[in-house]
């Protein structure tokens, strides 16, 4: 039960939403699916005077554009799973969405934008967006700006979103035709948050030689990070190279996240494991 009073708004457009946000002067909470916000309201962790519900602001849906594919901020995991465009161009997001727990309720309700904006290390979308080198469009009353996923995430529960700003869409650049994706997620059991995730985008030539590689790890550090994969370029992926990449992933986990489920030492140790597994998954 939510123990405090607030005013509820359901803006019908981004303009209206950013206007409400500006007017609330920091005492507002945006909700998309509300799967994070509502439990926190119930627990009294958030006590905003205004709730701005984005579900009517026309921010949902997947479309193709010159830049790649554009995913509205309030697109749910179910909508990602149903989208042929995502399946074709960003299969990584399909795999990611498939692994979201909580069943149909959470997949139908939770949004990719909500996961990004909450910026918790225990979430699937962040590392996947970083691996895809996605760009996030942020809007405020004064205008919009684009931020690369890699810089959008600033720490545990911290993002580049400023007070008064909204995430409106996520643009995933169109990948080259020879791309292969890999994804690995470690969770303790069915009900567990993701503990560490790794997403890999690999370009291979006809002989399996790596042309380009991008590998991101989530959950290990307080924010997702890109692993140095330069040693892979120009050679096929081997177990030894994968172990080398794992080592680099582990070294890069220099600001490990700790929560009640797993401490920093654990996350650091498994960061290399998920990185290696995502790489090998992409390579096969």
């Amino acid at each position: 039960m939510i123990g405090q009073r607030f005013e509820y708004h359901a803006p019908a457009s981004v303009e209206e939403a950013v206007g409400l946000l500006a007017a609330a002067n920091g005492d507002a909470n945006v909700i998309a699916g509300g799967t994070w916000v509502v439990p926190e309201l119930t627990h009294g962790i958030r006590t905003p005077a205004h709730i701005i519900d984005l579900r009517h602001a026309e921010l949902s849906g997947v479309s193709a554009s010159d830049a790649g594919i554009t995913i509205g901020a309030t697109t749910t995991y179910s909508a990602l799973l149903d989208s042929p465009l995502v399946g074709e161009w960003a299969a990584l997001l399909h795999t990611m969405a498939l692994g979201v727990t909580g069943g149909a309720q959470v997949r139908n309700q939770g949004t990719i934008g909500g996961s990004a904006c909450y910026a918790t290390p225990s979430s699937d979308a962040p590392a996947a967006l970083v691996a895809l080198d996605a760009s996030l469009t942020l809007a405020e009353a004064g205008g919009t700006r684009d931020v690369r996923a890699e810089t959008f995430f600033e720490g545990a529960f911290r993002s580049a979103l400023k007070q008064g700003e909204l995430l409106t869409e996520i643009v995933v650049p169109e990948p080259p035709s020879n791309v292969q994706f890999g994804y690995d997620k470690l969770k303790f059991c069915e009900s567990s948050w993701p503990i560490a995730t790794a997403a890999c985008v690999l370009g291979l030539d006809g002989d399996g030689v790596v042309e380009f590689a991008r590998l991101a790890v989530g959950g290990a550090n307080t924010k997702p990070y890109v692993v140095d994969t330069s040693l892979l370029v120009g050679t096929p992926v081997t177990r030894d190279l994968a172990d080398e990449v794992a080592e680099r992933a582990r070294e890069a986990a220099d600001d490990p996240y700790t929560d009640v489920l797993a401490d920093g030492a654990y996350r650091q140790q498994v960061s290399g494991v998920v990185a290696k597994r995502a790489l090998l998954d992409a390579a096969t």
Binding site: H43, C189, E190, S191, S192, W193, V260
Partner: peptide, 16 residues
């Protein structure tokens, strides 16, 4: 207490 909900007190589910 830190284990305050079923995302921090992890009970098994059928799939486990």
């Amino acid at each position: 207490p830190l284990s305050t909900r079923f995302k921090t007190y992890l009970m098994p589910r059928a799939g486990d």
